[in-house]
Write a protein that binds this DNA or RNA. Structure first.
Lengths: 229, 229
DNA sequence: TTGCGCTAGTGTGAAAATCACACTAAAGAG
DNA sequence: CTCTTTAGTGTGATTTTCACACTAGCGCAA
């Protein structure tokens, strides 16, 4: 048997673009670096992949260490591996993005000690390393994904209004949608369950609450129909 | 400055799904392995990334060593890095696919010595490593890409007929298309140049030859319009 | 208690895109 | 010269997309 010893080896990291939505706009979770290189710059949460760890497990671990969340939507986008992307040596990074319910967790105390903060995707200055490029790739992927898969719901609380859903799509797609046409389309897909509950405590006509119908979506997929917004 | 020495390092490869189209169906170029592991199994062309080499350069190199071709369409799909994907140790691979004009090159003599062969995408048995999974991911990506970018032309000779173009789309999308509707759509995009030449030596009414209009496509992109089939 | 501010919720018609469908034209082969 | 084979062409029905404006119902403050 030949051996791998003769070949060059590189350090591997995963970087995770963690998206959240707070009813106004789309945000990502960034960490302010505490060490060189790029000290004090904001960076994507990421860490080195260990010897026995699958790439996806590593991405899950990064997310869990920061937020405590598990079982979240996670998708690999691609690898970034320019020879000069890391000042300290060759580091290949695999970019993932994840979608979380922004109000469903507390930052872990360990994380708060470092500087961890939500940033609006739309107004971001430079990031450490090639993280801006990684973010852009992940955001583009999300934009495409959200049009053909019902992943948007991952970003909303379990009960939501149609207006919240519309605002979510508007934030991700960076466009305005027509209220009537949007509602017509969503309702016609038959993937929402009307909870027969209302918003409470709002100073205007309260909206109906809905939840996403996982079961219907499974049938939907099984029968070959496709989600399309 | 901290150092990378403390972190686990893995061997990195690129694997390249090289697509070609021979007027009947879509093919990929495979190599029959001459050594363990998976000796005698068919595998995607791929090789280890060297210390100073960008990932994309490595993918280009793999392609060039096999075919002599440069300047071809190449796109990264994603990384495959299951901890157990390689029997000899941890190897992360970055999957690329490329689109080449199947008749525009000769296999390099060095490659012919090894067993290199075109295989129909539709009838493939098992491949070495996780290469079937990689192929599937690349093929899916191509399917999506071909609907929104004019990458199909990369697979055709510079002069082609509308029927050839249609068959190409049918092979990639694994579906049948209506001749009249297909031609209407393609023609209405205004991205083909009618060469005022005809097929020669065919035992039936000869078809007109077209070429893809790179310039028009650039204007097209610049003005924000999108390609859609 | 009334009215104001605010967001929820609802339908129609025009325009565009998609889809299904069948015959004539032109070359080479025999 | 006729047979085989593929090239090339138009229309109408259906579906999808898009633009657009008013009434409903809650909390709040005067």
């Amino acid at each position: 048997m030949p051996s791998l010893d003769q070949f060059f080896k590189a350090a591997i990291t995963v970087d995770n673009v963690i998206f959240g939505f707070d009813d106004a706009d789309l945000k990502i979770l960034l960490i302010q670096r505490g060490e060189e290189p790029y000290i004090n710059k904001w960076a994507l949460p990421g860490y080195f992949v260990t010897e026995d760890e699958n790439l996806e497990s590593a991405a899950e671990r990064v997310l869990a260490e920061l937020t405590g969340l598990t079982n979240v939507y996670l998708e690999q986008v691609r690898a970034f591996g320019a020879a000069d992307r890391h000042p300290l040596g060759r580091v290949i990074t695999i970019a993932y993005y994840s979608l979380i319910k922004i109000n469903a967790f507390q930052l872990k105390p360990a994380s708060i000690a470092e500087k961890v903060k939500w940033h609006s995707v739309s107004k971001l200055d430079e990031l450490a390393f090639d993280h801006k490029e990684i973010l852009d790739a992940c955001f583009s992927r999300l934009k495409r994904r959200v049009r053909t898969r019902p992943v948007g719901f991952e970003l909303l609380p379990p009960k939501f209004t149609l207006t919240e859903l519309q605002h979510l799509y508007e934030s991700i797609l960076e466009t305005e949608l027509d209220k009537r046409n949007f509602r017509k389309k969503i309702i016609s897909m038959n993937l929402l369950i009307d909870l027969n509950e209302m918003q409470e405590g709002v100073a205007h006509r309260p909206a109906k609450l809905y939840k996403f119908d996982q079961e219907k979506y499974k049938e939907f997929v099984a029968s070959g129909y496709s989600f399309e917004i």
